[in-house]
Design a protein around this nucleic acid. Structure first.
Lengths: 247, 247
DNA sequence: CCGGCACAGATTGTTGACAATCTACGATTT
DNA sequence: AAATCGTAGATTGTCAACAATCTGTGCCGG
């Protein structure tokens, strides 16, 4: 299996620490505005400040934490507008990636491999835990976008995905109400479009997915009541759908 | 003036070092494949390894250098495809930003401030030095995109801009042949569209700018002879131009 | 002659101590 | 009483030494 072999793990101490911190934020242990004191974290993880410092610098460009010169880092306090912005970027970049994938086509083995990642989303045990569900969903979408052979854009999408997930958690949006079956169905629609090498459909499916996701969050977010995603400037029709023409 | 007051400089030692390294790459002092040894750099800058290490980690996500676990960092060895990918991302994200700007409109003072940044591009002394020209051009485009009030997307654009500039230099593309007047004219066209709050025109102007830029690079890059940018999948018409409708 | 193994040098990863900076609180001045 | 100043504590920024890892070279057995 190409997944089992060769993808050497990216596990430096700093990365491990960064993952832990991200996890803490997703789980609600760390809340917006909380200070990240290098000394404290170093003590807690029983390592020195160096790797902790590196982990913080690793998290900063993700927008998860804010750091100010000589004053340390605090957990970001995002607004719903930040979520919208991240998803807008995610939508556009995803269109580019998916149009490229669908245009070029994917060999069967690789395609099946990505498809199989959806199984985790169907696992009741995974579905029971919002954080696991989030991770499985992101893992699938990352693998999907990697098919584009556009590594930098895939990286940006991966970052934006983590960003989005973190922001949603930080805003206290209740993700539990999500209809898992509908989510999977949307992903399957995108996959079908790719299998049919139909860029237009792939892009449309993706746009719908993003818009539905954002709309769902808007419903789950108490402080936004009058947001109609379809009319929001960043997501308004007609979108960049025309990119896939001339295939 | 809002530019003179309050924008406290982001000058940590690590950032200064990162700038120096970037500059060295732009000037050709550091070439693709060259190793970045922490000890050497620390000696040269007469500081300890800590800040140097941090600078390298700062440069890595820009794609400027590649770092492998326990094996240090080397200057990236990009291909022309990398340039295309970066510009494709830059084009899409720029469309989003510019459509937003043109849709909302910009107050006169801020607009003039950004416009005035074009003056540096007209300075013969700046035009004489490719690196200065590059920096002035990036400074203008960054300021322009910041008008969108989409800080994350502006950040991505800033990074992609530096990326693009670095890659172009690393590929040894001769930037000297650039028609400075034409470049300025393209920027002025975008500005005019914004002033007229015409999103469609702003997006189109931007697309044309990117495509012309890429085409220019393709001409300056010996090893690519049969590239016609207009037909390249990542830049093919029709593009996401439709985004700005329903203004 | 070829593949595996072990060693030495070089380089990165980590650590704890020291220096510089910031925040908060209270004293001083007007 | 309000504002300014100054000090103490906490925290980040920097450093040099140590530990772990990697690369390459030469030896050995086959």
């Amino acid at each position: 299996m190409s997944t089992a072999l060769a993808p050497l793990p990216e596990s430096s101490t700093a990365h491990l620490v960064a993952d832990r911190i991200r996890e803490a934020i997703w789980q609600g242990t760390l809340r917006p505005g909380d200070r990240l004191v290098e000394t404290d974290l170093a003590e807690r993880f029983e390592i020195s400040r160096g790797p902790v410092r590196e982990a913080i610098r690793l998290l900063a460009p993700e927008g998860l934490i804010v750091l100010r010169r000589n004053r340390g880092a605090v957990v970001a306090n995002p607004t719903f507008d930040d979520v919208l912005e991240v998803y807008a970027a995610r939508m556009t970049l995803g269109e580019l990636a998916l149009a490229t994938i669908a245009r070029r086509g994917v060999d069967r083995a690789t395609f099946d491999e990505v498809t199989s990642l959806l199984d985790r989303l169907r696992d009741p045990i995974v579905q029971a835990d919002p954080v696991s569900m989030l991770e499985a969903d992101l893992a699938f979408q990352d693998a999907l976008m990697r098919l584009s052979d556009l590594p930098r854009i895939a990286d940006m999408l991966e970052n934006s995905g983590r960003d989005a997930a973190s922001f949603v958690r930080l805003l206290g949006i209740t993700y539990e109400s999500t209809d898992h079956d509908a989510l999977i169905a949307r992903h399957e629609r995108t996959l079908a479009a790719i299998a049919a090498t139909n860029p237009a459909e792939a892009v449309t499916a993706w746009q719908d997915h993003i818009r539905l996701t954002v709309a769902e969050f808007a419903r789950g977010y108490r402080e936004v009541d009058d947001l109609s995603v379809d009319q929001h400037p960043l997501f308004a029709y007609p979108l960049s759908a025309s990119r896939q023409e001339k295939s």
